[in-house]
Amino acid sequence: MTNSDATFDVVAFDELADRLVEMGGGSHPSELHGILCGTFAAGSQPGVETWFRQVSGLLDNEELDNEELDSRFQDLLTKMYQGTLQQLDQSDFSIALLLPDDDALEQRTEALGYWCQGFLSGFGEVIGSKTLSEEVEGVLSDFSEIAQIQPEADNSDESERFFIEVSEFVRMALITVFSEVTAQEKTKKGGKKTIH
């Protein structure tokens, strides 16, 4: 469930959080990962430069592609982009949500809400008015509810179990949406081929 479980070299939550603070805030690490996952799940692979510009818009239009920018931040964004895409393309259920590992349950719950919020934003921006299956519509509705979650300072075992169940649901739902939309896109492209 955490970023340390992934096979690919992905970004550490704390490292990205630190860099975002240094850049002046404006976004949450989980939200950024959610946006990226939503973009990919909607069938778009915009490229790293476009990803830089998208993040730039969230960080009060800091120029992310100029020479003055700390290259470590660009490296993190590149690693996030490539690692996330690789995980989704593997189709082995290895994708991990970018959530804090060791923080209190309240912070992790809040991060999950940010992730869902980011996913809906990234997905909605790309998918436009395309027709979606009932299952995908249901996932988007569930994500919308999770995005509104109000974390409470409750670290009981029951709350921990509930968080794990919900975050695992979100992770598997991401895989479902990505797989379904990708399959639809491949079918559409395949349907345009002419048979000689």
Rank of each mutant, 00 (worst) to 15 (best):
K130R: 13
L140T: 01
G124W: 04
G113K: 02
T109D: 12
A96C: 05
L85E: 09
G113E: 09
C116Y: 02
P151V: 02
S133T: 10
Y114I: 00
D142P: 10
I146D: 06
G122R: 02
Q148L: 13
D102Q: 15
S94F: 01
D89N: 13
G83E: 00
A111W: 05
D92V: 12
Q82S: 10
A147C: 06
S133M: 11
S144H: 10
F93N: 12
L132D: 03
A153C: 08
V139S: 03
Q117K: 12
V126C: 13
S129Q: 13
F143S: 01
L112S: 09
I149A: 12
L98C: 07
L98S: 04
I146Q: 09
A104D: 14
Y81I: 03
S91K: 06
L77N: 06
G124E: 07
D102E: 15
S144F: 11
V139T: 07
E135C: 00
M80I: 00
A147L: 04
D101Y: 07
G138N: 14
E137L: 15
F93W: 12
D142K: 04
F119T: 05
Q87R: 05
E145L: 13
Q82L: 13
G113W: 07
Q90L: 11
S141C: 03
L77M: 00
S133R: 07
W115E: 02
D89M: 15
D102N: 15
S91W: 01
R108S: 14
E137M: 14
A147M: 06
L140C: 05
K130A: 15
S91L: 14
G122V: 02
F93E: 12
R108M: 11
F93A: 15
S121D: 10
S121I: 10
